[in-house]
Computed example of a mutant assay.
Amino acid sequence: MAYRILIVEDEPGMIELLTVALEDEGYEISIASNGEQGLKKVEHEDPDLIISDVMMPDMNGYDFCQQLRSNPKTAAIPFIFLTAKKDVSDRVRGLNLGADDYISKPFHVVEVVARIKTLMMRSKRVRPNQSSSPMPETEAAFAGDLEKMSIGEVVQTIALTRKNGRLIVVNGNRRGEIYFKDSIVTYADVDRKKGEEAVYRLLSWKNGQFKFDSGATAETPNIRKTAESLLMEGMRRLDEYYRLLNDFPATDSALEALSLTEGDLNPEELQVLNYVNQYSTVIDVIDHSKLGDLKTLQILVKLQTNNIIGVRSGAETAAEAESMDYDQLAEDLFG
């Protein structure tokens, strides 16, 4: 028997789009135009999953979800908000009410289908012709694409809902992890960075996918700070990155040492100069440095200003480029 999905939506175009896409996947679709109709449909049809808008007449999606979660007979039905409301506070409200997922419009249909399949597998919803054993109350994954929800928004959502577990972020062949416990970040790791520096680097990623696994704990914590404090410091650092990159060589530019006045340099500056001799390009120097991304970039700027390092012949600086994209520069460097 096909799985039944209830769509609670008042926009005909959206209903048609979802219906066509989900029926093509083999799902049986039922429609309600507001929360009140949705409650009646749930009572008579027992859907396997519900997709609901937020802003609807008579009864909005929040009230609809709250009533479902307060009823033991309907509390475990997987529930997805699909809405134009994009603010973090709206997302947090929906998740706090018990929604399993929150997808903002506009969206890709393939993403919605993938989220539905994930929820179905995790909830193991029982059909009448299957085993009559009770459905396990497992929590669905909080997952998505960084182009639709930034890392900052993801971290803030997890912290505000006080979820405990592991955030996994994947960007091509790169992978980062952040562990949370009661709004406290306890562990972070990405590339060669760990702890706070790993969080700051992840905050600058603009592309990739994320997934939150509830319940996972860090075996060896390497940080203990509130997510809020890390976000505030991370945003401050990003602003500084952009400012420094404005007059600095492109991240793939090759650097070289111009002066050997090592006696005038402090240990950190000597360390960065050594990285320049080893790795050459701006992006490689920052990636391998143990001083942190911002600190390393600050030292590189100072060394260049003092003519201790320079760009190899033929390399282009940002100031010389006619149409340098600084967002792309930051993305090349950090994400």
Rank of each mutant, 00 (worst) to 15 (best):
I283W: 07
A32F: 07
I31V: 15
N164L: 00
I223C: 08
L258Y: 03
Q67T: 09
D213Q: 13
S89C: 09
D213P: 01
D325E: 00
Y179W: 15
A188Q: 06
L255G: 06
E25K: 11
L329D: 05
V301R: 12
A75H: 03
G94A: 07
T220V: 14
D287W: 07
R224F: 14
G38Q: 05
F81D: 01
E219F: 11
S133V: 07
M59I: 03
G195V: 01
A318I: 08
I151C: 14
F142V: 08
S280H: 10
A76Y: 06
I77N: 03
L68Y: 10
G195M: 02
H108A: 14
T317G: 12
D252R: 10
T296N: 04
L297I: 11
R91P: 00
F79D: 01
D239N: 09
A188L: 05
P267T: 13
E36V: 14
G165D: 09
S131Q: 14
L82S: 02
M149K: 13
E43I: 12
S253G: 06
K206Q: 10
R166Y: 02
I299N: 02
G165I: 10
V282A: 07
V154N: 12
D284G: 00
A143S: 12
F79E: 01
Y179Q: 13
V276M: 13
K40G: 06
E196Q: 11
A218C: 09
F334N: 07
K41I: 07
F334Y: 08
T226F: 11
N60A: 05
Q278G: 03
L297A: 12
R237T: 07
K85W: 01
P128S: 15
L6G: 06
Y62F: 15
R224W: 12
Y62W: 12
G98Y: 05
A159D: 02
T305I: 11
S253K: 04
V169D: 05
R192P: 00
K206T: 09
P221D: 15
A143V: 06
D182I: 10
E269V: 13
V109W: 06
N129Q: 14
N71F: 06
R192K: 11
L258V: 06
E16Q: 12
T138I: 08
N71Y: 08
E262V: 11
L167C: 03
S123A: 10
Q66A: 15
T251A: 01
V112A: 08
D325N: 10
P47D: 02
K302C: 04
E45Q: 06
